[in-house]
């Protein structure tokens, strides 16, 4: 039988993680689905678990001049209602889950779940978010694109936990979030897209695009983006076929029970095109 521990302080959680092999449960919504057993039976975790959901000191949204900081046990709903949270993230949360899940699930849990179809990740990639990982004797900060290593694979040591998500503040002239799901709420994405652009004096100062569920991880190509920074908005639009060409070979979706790769690829390219042409 697996051991489970309810941590109510960060110190307790870190000590527990340091004492053996534990899986971390925050809101628990994804962990439940991955470890489902049967009605009337306890959740079928295969490893020991440490519950961190009740660590109040990690339930916060703070900001300074440069960043917004979201604690690991902060609910999606709290972020949605917060004045400080980035608008892109709020738009995503608004569409990614129904009220019941939003009141339960956490952003940190979403990140740790590392699903290629995770909507919030797409926004966090565009926002250049970083993840704070803590253990009893160390704290380190990792960029989200480095933290996520593959499908459900993350850069987290067995004695570490995510304690905070750091999101740099940016001003975009325009941003778009598009969740392409089989229905309008309460569904896993077939693919998702975030585009953000900053235009000053008709010049592209910043351009970022990220796609979910078209590759093993969220797809963001900073080298492609940088090629077009500095162009006039007119030049950018004239280059649309080049941009599509640039992304074309990197978009490698799969067939599954929700959609097929042809659709995912074409719609991904359509979304890029639509975003650029409407900027």
């Amino acid at each position: 039988m697996v051991e489970s521990h309810i941590a109510k302080t960060l110190e307790d959680a870190l000590k527990t993680l340091n004492s053996g092999k534990f899986r971390i449960v925050a809101g628990g919504t994804d962990m439940l689905i991955q470890n489902r057993s049967h009605t009337g039976m306890p959740i079928g975790y295969k490893d020991n678990v440490v519950y961190i959901n009740l660590i109040n000191e990690l339930d916060y949204i703070k900001e300074d001049e440069d960043n917004v900081y979201i604690g690991a046990t902060t609910r999606l709903e709290t972020i949605l209602k917060s004045e400080n949270a980035p608008k892109i993230l709020k738009n995503i949360i608004h569409e990614m889950a129904g009220p019941g899940i939003r009141h339960t699930a956490t952003l940190a849990g979403n990140i740790a779940n590392a699903s290629p179809a995770g909507d919030s990740l797409v926004g966090l990639y565009v926002l250049d978010a970083s993840i704070k990982c803590q253990s009893v004797d160390n704290t380190r900060i990792v960029k989200i694109k480095d933290f996520i290593q593959g499908v459900r694979k993350i850069d987290l040591k067995s004695n570490e936990m995510i304690t905070e998500v750091m999101i740099p503040k940016y001003d975009f002239s325009r941003f778009v979030f598009k969740k392409v799901a089989p229905r309008l709420s309460d569904a896993i994405s077939k693919l998702s897209f975030v585009g953000a652009i900053r235009i000053e004096d008709n010049e592209v100062k910043d351009l970022r695009m990220a796609l979910g569920a078209v590759y093993m991880t969220v797809l963001r190509k900073e080298d492609i983006e940088s090629k077009y920074i500095g162009q006039s908005i007119g030049e950018l639009k004239n280059n649309i076929e080049l941009i599509i060409e640039d992304y074309n070979s990197f978009i490698k979706p799969i067939d599954d029970q929700r959609s097929n790769k042809e659709y995912r690829k074409q719609v991904a390219l359509n979304l890029i095109k639509d975003f650029i042409m409407k900027s």
Binding site: I6, V25, G27, L32, L54, P99, H103
Partner: peptide
């Protein structure tokens, strides 16, 4: 606030 009780482990209710 509304939650799905099927997705809430009892630990989180303490």
């Amino acid at each position: 606030q509304i939650v799905n009780s099927c997705s809430v482990p009892l630990a989180n209710v303490d």
